[in-house]
């Protein structure tokens, strides 16, 4: 499973950071920072899916 994040779509809802701080941090202004590159560790795949499914702006995508 791969995860990607599009900063230009992010409006700082912080849903991902709340659901999975292991995968997302936030910057000083509250925009998301994706913490993993490429492959999502297997124990975090459910959380990655949750992040994608809850982003109101469709800024997070999952592949595979």
């Amino acid at each position: 499973m791969k995860i990607s994040y599009d900063r230009s779509k992010c409006q700082g809802h912080n849903r991902c950071y709340m659901l999975a701080p292991e995968l997302f941090d936030t910057d000083d202004e509250g925009y998301a920072i994706l913490l993993v590159e490429g492959e999502v560790p297997s124990d975090l795949q459910d959380k990655a899916q949750l992040c994608a499914d809850n982003c109101p702006e469709y800024a997070i995508e999952i592949e595979g």
């Binding site: 409006q11 700082g12 809802h13 912080n14 509250g30 949750l50 499914d53 809850n54 982003c55 109101p56 702006e57």
Partner: peptide, 20 residues
Amino acid sequence: RAANRHSAFGLGIHRCIGSN
């Protein structure tokens, strides 16, 4: 509810700044 892409705090550039 697991998948909950609600817009209680709005959508777009005016997302509620006090949402947190």
